[in-house]
Design a protein around this nucleic acid. Sequence first.
DNA 1: CGGATCGAC
DNA 2: CTATGTCGATCCG
Length: 865
Amino acid sequence: MDQIEDKDATFGNEAFQYRMGLNDNKAGMEGLDKEKINKIIMDVTKGSRFYDNELKKDQQVNQRIEKMMQQKARLTSQQIKKAQAQMDRLVLELEKRRDLNRVIVHIDMDAFYAAVEMRDNPELKDKPMAVGSMSMLSTSNYLARRFGVRAAMPGFIAKKLCPNLTIVPTNFDKYRAVSSEIREILADYDPNFLPLSLDEAYLDITDHLEERLSWPEEKRRHVITDENVTEERTLEGAETGEQVQCTSPVLFEDSPSFPADQNGTVTTPDNAERNQLVKTVVFGISKEDAVEEMRFRIEQKTKLTASAGIAPNMLLAKVCSDKNKPNGQYTVPPDRQAVMDFIKDLPIRKVPGIGKVTEKMLKALGVVTCTDLYQQRALLSLLFSETAWQNFLHIAMGLGSTHVEKDGERKSMSTERTFSEIHVAEEQFDLCQQLCKDLAQDLGKERLKGKTVTLKLKNVNFEVKTRACTVNSAVSTEEEIFSVAKEILKAEIDSVAPEPLRLRLMGVRVSGFLSEDDKGYHQKSITSFLCPSKSSSSTSGERPAKSNQEIAASLLPRESFFNQKRAAREIQEHSPCKLNNREEKMPFVSSEDKRKEATLEDMDMNEDLTCPICFMKESSWDLEGLNKHIDLCLSKTPVSSVIKKLDKDENSTFLRGKHNDGDDDYSLEDFQSVDVHTKNLVNKIVDTRTYCDLDKGVFNEIRALEELGEEVQMDYNHCALTDTNTKGYHQMPSENILFECESNFKEPVNEKLSSQPSTSVLLESPVFICPICNSKQDSTDLAAFNRHVDVCLNRGILEEMSVEIIDVKKESPLTNHKQTDHIGKGNRSNNATKQMKRSGVSSQNPVSKKPKSNCPTKTIDRFFK
DNA sequence: CGGATCGAC
DNA sequence: CTATGTCGATCCG
């Protein structure tokens, strides 16, 4: 949203230097320079209660950083190395899943509210203006920005910066109307587009582009109704020089039937009868052209300009749309190297989900750009929570969600109000009641009832407090809500008595909604569970037959008390849908390995660039060289073997071999782990996955991977087993391995959920085959064999890409990054969150969210005991 | 579950 | 004089 596009550009004194955005002061007109702006802001701000509170908050952040630095100091190099190895493994995992096939667009109106107001009142055209009130601005026009007037800045400060500033009040109805006009256009390109706000949206135009290919020119021709607007359109990107392949000029294609003027516009005799020439323009079929067209149509229809980002995922698209703002667009091509180049010098603050606090904490660790973020991944994984560092890693690799989907139902509803100080209890209760009334009305519109009521209070010192209370029966009416809120408020007043509460803000929130279809709910969720969505690759529907309890248990083995409880609750409430992080955690579930550590030890730490694929090292590599090499590695893969599939009526997958002399069965219990090699037929990436929990339906996991899409093909030729007892390596000769895969995942799950898959392995008599050099080793001495493998690994003689690192697994394969105290609130934005969820094999089933929890909750009485 | 906090718009 | 409002998410206890 352009309104807030300058993330916290509010304060400018020393304490807040880190928040300052850059002032674009290009034209050098009458605008103020940065220092002057800072000084003015400082003068106005200093000494206010607000400022004091900001200082306090700043101190708190500093303390968090302090704690983090102490924790960092306690880390041993061992820990870092281990983390490094694990992160690298995850990097591979993620790399394999990288999807560059969608064309995602993020579209963002330029200074939306201000632009609308300027359009409707030409007098504002050449003046610095802002939309909002004396107490708060929502956005400013570009002229005002030259004076440092930004969104989220109080109007009175803006006035100091720019005494001539015109402040016009917000007119939301108007913006809504304009927004819906825009959305009509967007729907032509993606009927399922995702609006983020009135002025911002994500689109997936992949399908549109495909159709567009076969569109006749006439379908891409648009009438120019407002020439003023159109003539201004020029080729962007020339100034930056990096946009050669990205922004194509608006394509004023030559029309075969009508002559074009030198602008490329063509005149048609359509309205010849009226002696009037109609100018039209034809857009091409490329994605850039399609987006140019989209922006052109928006401008023609609304007289407002938009900026756009085109990229293979939402995260990148969003960052892109900012690049050539205003009235421009930018493309990141669907190419790994291009993505990396784009990411390389990108300041992390630019990416959605990284706010000022996260920025400051990361800066303390020397992380400013995405490259820094990538290089520090091991450290970050030890200092931040799992969700936080996983998000970091995604960002650092330029990964993001490729599914633009609408969010689920709302989780809460609230209303709050700021006012001049109120300290009389009676007035406070009245206000509270009023808020409850408003909220009840809003709740009524959506027929929502919720079980927890939260009261939010901000005192005159800007200190915020929230107090919540959940009751047994859901509330929705003014009286019901107020009866709860009143009690909380009373308690708060009492808590500071005899001093009065000096409030400047009060808010009421209701959450914990129960769904209306509380009855139909179960059925509904089961149905959707059985019918994976059209994209089918990432639904939780394809849960393999496996006890969910077990999966969950294996996934959350060392979680905190609370997480365990939560997990238990979730399993109880709705078993199949709670396992979304499974895939993310896989690599960590898999192995913790001495040998690997030894070889990875010096890998990729501090400028020591080692290819994570082939483990090759080259002193001449710089980051770019390494990346090129990795690209090569990733694309250079062996042809995978043919998969033998047998039709079976059983619902399980078998790994079966024939023992030479016949009858002896090798069961999976004989092996501690299996390394399975997969190949992604689309991007040709080969990966080795290690599975330890062989007795827990591991092959269903493998199969699920296969089901991830046609694009993943198993390389059954190289299925390596690690013997539990001897810890030796065995490679399964391909001709003796038979996979029988039934691939019907859409069958009723009821039985599957409880039944264990039967897995068994038969294997030729153990042979020591070096997984690296593939040579058969005569030695029966395990230690000698292991030494050979070590040597092989270290020599890095891995010309072939199907490197098989076969690990000796330790007994406790789980190396969760469980920290005693995590620093960082690991905040991912809504967007980022979506990315995380959506990037997974299993995303949460959207319909199945409503826990039926009958569990007794605190009553109001007990709460105030 | 409750409270504080972050982040986005 | 005068520093928003609303929502979702996460983390910690």
